[in-house]
Amino acid sequence: MARYSGPRLRIMRALGVQLPGLSRKQWDARKPYPPGMHHGRHRKKLSVFGTQLQEKQKLRFNYGLGEKQFRRVVAMSFQKRGNPGENLLQFLERRLDNAIFRAGFAPTIPAARQLVVHGHVRINGKRVNKPSFLIKAGHEISLSEKASKFTHVEASLENPAIVRPEWLGVDAAKKTASVVAVPDHESVPFPIEINHIVEFYSK
C-alpha cells in the first residue's frame, strides 16, 4: 500500500484522534463520528480485530509509512530483544523525519521528510537523505544553510506543532538539535494501545 496522500483531517476523524505528525489542523472532537454522508451520531463499537487495526493505523498514518514499510519496522521490533511493542514505538520515534518534526524544524512529518530527501539535513555535519535513518544519543541534527532560511522552517521553529520532547536539546537560533537520550515508548505524542498492535501482528 502506497503512502497516504489524501485529506488528512478525514483520516483523523476516521480514527478519532489528533495525529500531530500527519497534520497541524485540529480534528474537531465535537464530531465524534467518521466522515461520510451516512454517519450516525456515535461510533459503532469495534470488534477486537477492528480495534487492533485502528491502533495500527494511528501509528502508520502519524509516522507516514506505507503498509510494507510499517511491516518491516514491526519485524525489526519483534526481532530485537525486549518488549516488541515498546521496541516498535522507539523505532518510530527514532526515525530522522520524526526527529526533524519533533525538534520543530518542520510543521509535519511529511514536511520533515521533504527536508531529508532533498538533502537539507545533516547528522554530525554529514548529509543524510534517508527519512528512515535511526538517530541515537550523541547525534547532532542540523539544516543546510539554504533550508535554515526557508519560511516554513522559521515559522515552525517560532511556533512548534507540539511540545519538544526531553530527548532533544534544540538551539532554535542555530537551528540545531542534539539527541541527548534515546526516545522511549512514552515519547509518542498521542494515545496508543500498543498491545493491540502486538496482538495484531502475533497471529
Results as ranks from 00 to 15, higher is better:
Glu154Ala: 11
Leu134Ser: 14
Ser142Arg: 04
Ala155Pro: 13
Ser144Gln: 06
Glu154Phe: 09
Phe150Met: 05
His139Trp: 03
Ser148Ala: 10
Glu158Ala: 12
Val163Ser: 15
Ala161Leu: 14
Thr151Ser: 14
His152Tyr: 14
Ser156Thr: 04
Glu154Asp: 12
Lys146Glu: 10
Asn159Trp: 12
Ala137Arg: 09
Ala137Asp: 08
Lys136Arg: 02
Glu140Cys: 11
Val153Thr: 01
Ala147Pro: 03
Ser132Val: 03
Glu154Lys: 15
Ser144Tyr: 05
Glu140His: 08
Lys146Ser: 10
Ile141Cys: 04
Lys136Met: 03
Ser148Tyr: 04
Glu158Lys: 13
Ala161Asp: 11
Leu134Arg: 13
Ala137Pro: 07
Glu145Leu: 14
Pro160Leu: 05
Ser144Gly: 08
His139Ile: 02
Glu140Trp: 07
Ala137Gln: 11
His139Gly: 02
Thr151Trp: 13
Ser148Met: 08
Ala155Thr: 15
Phe133Met: 07
Thr151Ile: 12
Ser148Val: 02
Ser156Trp: 02
Lys149Thr: 10
Ile162Ala: 06
Ser156Val: 01
Phe133Cys: 06
Ile141Glu: 04
Ser156Ile: 02
Glu158Thr: 10
Ser132Ala: 15
Thr151Ala: 13
Pro160Ile: 00
Ser156Tyr: 00
Ile141Ala: 04
Ala147Ile: 06
Ser142Val: 05
Val163Ile: 14
Ile141Thr: 05
Ile141Trp: 02
Asn159His: 14
Val153Ser: 03
Lys149Gln: 11
Leu157Ile: 09
Lys136Ala: 00
Ser132Tyr: 06
Ala147Arg: 03
Pro160Glu: 02
Leu134Cys: 13
His152Arg: 13
Ser156Phe: 00
Ser144Val: 06
Ser156Leu: 00
Ser132His: 09
Asn159Tyr: 11
Gly138Leu: 05
Ser132Trp: 06
Val163Leu: 12
Ser142Leu: 07
Asn159Ala: 11
Lys149Ala: 09
Lys136Cys: 04
Lys146Leu: 09
Ala155Ser: 15
Ile135Trp: 01
Leu143Phe: 02
Ile162Arg: 07
Ser156Gln: 03
Ser142Asn: 07
Ser148Asp: 07
Ser148His: 02
Ala161Arg: 12
Phe150Ile: 01
Phe150Leu: 04
Glu145Cys: 14
Lys146Cys: 07
Pro160Gln: 03
Phe150Ala: 01
Val153Gly: 01
Glu154Trp: 09
Leu143His: 02
Leu157Phe: 09
Thr151Val: 15
Pro160Phe: 01
His139Glu: 00
Asn159Lys: 15
Ala147Gln: 06
Lys146Tyr: 09
Phe133His: 07
Glu154Tyr: 10
Ala137Lys: 13
Ala155Arg: 15
Ser156Ala: 05
Ser148Gln: 08
Lys136Ile: 03
Ser156Pro: 01
Ala147Val: 02
His139Pro: 00
Thr151Phe: 14
Leu157Glu: 08
Ala161Cys: 13
Pro160Ala: 05
His139Thr: 03
Glu154Val: 11
Val163Met: 15
Pro160Gly: 00
Ser144Trp: 04
Leu134Thr: 11
Glu158Gly: 13
Phe133Val: 04
Ser142Lys: 03
Asn159Thr: 11
Ser156His: 04
Thr151Cys: 14
Glu158Pro: 07
Leu157Pro: 06
Ser156Asn: 03
